[in-house]
Amino acid sequence: MNQPPQPVMNLARIMGLDIGDRRIGVAISDGLGLTAQPVFTLHRSNPREDIRSIARLTRKHEATAIVAGLPLHMSGDLSPQAQKSQAFAQELAKRTGLPLYFWDERLTSHAAHEILDVSGFGTTGRKAVIDQVAAVLILQGFLDAQRGPTLLPPQNV
């Protein structure tokens, strides 16, 4: 369930997270809030240390907001993983004091695998980057929604 995007165009950099049980993919926007780039994959150890590590990354990259992927069921209902992601992200937001947004990440991991397949990225080392690609897709979806729909000029047919 995507929250209606609030205008955040004055924000310098936004951090995107793909929160899983074993890894957290991290992405960051450019200074204009136009594009998302992969940053890091955190291999989780324990919630307290994971939050401390991500909080350090928010400071290092001067993030001014956090977008966390919300893995919903195809029906739109919260999955057990969505509840875990929400709890983690809310604790991170409390620790950093940054605004938190949730973004529907249904099919993001599938899309990330497709992107890596098309780019010719082999299966070796895929786990190291798949969560970063998913975080990029989550963040890029949020950034694109901030700008609204792109209208193409009419075509003469």
Rank of each mutant, 00 (worst) to 15 (best):
E114C: 00
L152P: 00
P7L: 12
E105W: 01
K127H: 10
H43N: 14
L42K: 05
S45H: 14
Q3D: 08
R13I: 04
R48W: 01
L137G: 05
R52D: 12
M9Y: 12
L78Y: 02
L137F: 09
G125A: 13
A128S: 15
Q37L: 11
P47L: 05
P153E: 12
L11G: 05
E105D: 08
L143W: 12
R52M: 03
R23H: 08
P99G: 02
F88V: 07
R106C: 04
P80W: 07
Q37F: 09
N10D: 14
R126Q: 13
G125M: 11
G69K: 14
P99Q: 06
G31D: 12
G25H: 09
P7K: 13
N2Q: 13
A55L: 13
I138M: 14
Q83P: 00
T64G: 14
R13Y: 06
A82H: 03
T96N: 04
I115Q: 15
E91C: 00
L137V: 07
N46G: 08
A12D: 13
G125H: 01
V136F: 07
R95T: 10
D131Y: 03
A93M: 10
Q155N: 09
E114Y: 04
P154S: 10
Q140C: 03
G33R: 05
K94R: 04
P99N: 04
L42S: 05
Q86E: 14
L116A: 03
L151N: 11
L151E: 15
D18V: 01
M1G: 08
I54F: 09
I28P: 00
L11H: 10
H113K: 13
P80C: 13
R95V: 11
H73M: 11
R22S: 07
I24G: 02
Q81E: 07
R59G: 02
A12W: 12
G20W: 07
D104Q: 00
S79P: 09
N156T: 07
K60T: 11
S53R: 15
G33P: 11
N46D: 15
Q90L: 11
I138D: 05
F40C: 03
R95P: 00
P154G: 06
L11Q: 14
A12I: 02
P5A: 07
R22G: 03
R44Y: 14
D30Q: 04
L34S: 04
I66H: 11
E62K: 09
K60H: 15
L107K: 05
P4F: 07
G25S: 10
T150Y: 13
T124S: 12
T124V: 13
S109V: 09
P7I: 05
I28M: 15
I19D: 02
K84H: 08
P149G: 14
G125P: 07
